[in-house]
């Protein structure tokens, strides 16, 4: 069974009497340990898709199964619990709480899952070690560089051991060198078996993931990079235009 199953999901907004279909009949499966990018220009619906997959929003139509749990009609309270346990977010603007230090920021998700003080501290320190930030645990976000802040945010996303990590333009606010290091960190996490979904408008960044979900006007067009997916040694039955893929990404 796939980790995420989207079936005929649509999201409709009503703006001043006008109907906007941000997502139009999307059907999608995501397997455990996949490294996926969702790519599309702004206004394409990629943010809406991420919000729905990330339990920040509910679809207008369709069904979603996340880790075997139906979430398309869950209450906001249940969505909060799912976000807390099964989903980690990394944002473009890091979104750390400026009044808390690095350690307290990383502990934040565990506060809402009721983890006791000592375990919370240990797990937060462990997550900070994974991203190489353990030595900055007592620093405030304002005392850190952009890359360090993003590492902290990644540690926060990891700390509750979620099933999926969403990264929304994670390198968008970083210089290319730091951005590369952050992408490398995601690549490492992927190799450790984590499910990671990168949301970006930049095809160059999307090129690091084996599977790319391209969104245009709320509809999905999928492409799989055989080489990155490690499938180049065997024929694959999916998508017919694989060979022309690298060019298509540009």
């Amino acid at each position: 069974m796939p980790l995420v199953e989207l079936r005929n999901v649509s999201k409709v907004y009503h703006l001043g009497g006008e109907e906007i279909r941000a997502l139009d009949d999307v059907t999608l499966d995501i397997e455990t340990a996949e490294f996926i990018s969702i790519i599309g220009p702004s206004g394409s619906g990629k943010s809406t898709l991420m919000h729905i997959l990330g339990c920040l929003d509910s679809p207008s139509q369709g069904t979603i199964l996340l880790d075997g749990v139906m979430i398309h009609n869950a209450s906001s309270r249940e969505l909060a619990a799912i976000r807390n346990r099964k989903i980690g977010f990394v944002f473009q603007f890091f979104n750390l709480l400026p009044k808390l230090n690095v350690l307290q920021n990383v502990e934040l998700p565990m506060i809402y899952s009721g983890v006791g003080g000592k375990v919370r501290h240990e797990r937060a320190m462990h997550a900070l070690e994974q991203v190489g930030m353990a030595n900055r645990a007592k620093h405030r976000p304002s005392q850190l560089s952009g890359g360090q802040q993003q590492r902290t945010a990644i540690a926060r996303a990891l700390v509750n051991n979620p099933r999926i990590i969403f990264a929304d333009e994670p390198t968008g606010n970083l210089d290319s060198h730091t951005g590369e290091a952050i992408l490398q960190l995601f690549r490492n996490l992927s190799q450790e078996g984590r499910t990671i979904i990168l949301v970006t408008h930049d095809p160059e960044i999307a090129a690091v993931t084996p599977r790319r979900i391209e969104i245009r006007d709320g509809k999905v067009a999928e492409k799989v990079d055989i080489k990155l997916a490690g499938l180049d040694r065997a024929p694959i039955p999916t998508a017919g235009d694989i060979t022309s893929l690298p060019d298509a990404c540009r």
Binding site: L56, S76, R83, N84, N95, Y112, R156, N160
Partner: peptide, 16 residues
């Protein structure tokens, strides 16, 4: 507002 958004994104419910 942003802080509340962040807290909600990491799993704070409305009740929290």
């Amino acid at each position: 507002v942003r802080e509340i958004g962040i807290r909600k994104s990491v799993g704070a419910s409305g009740a929290d």
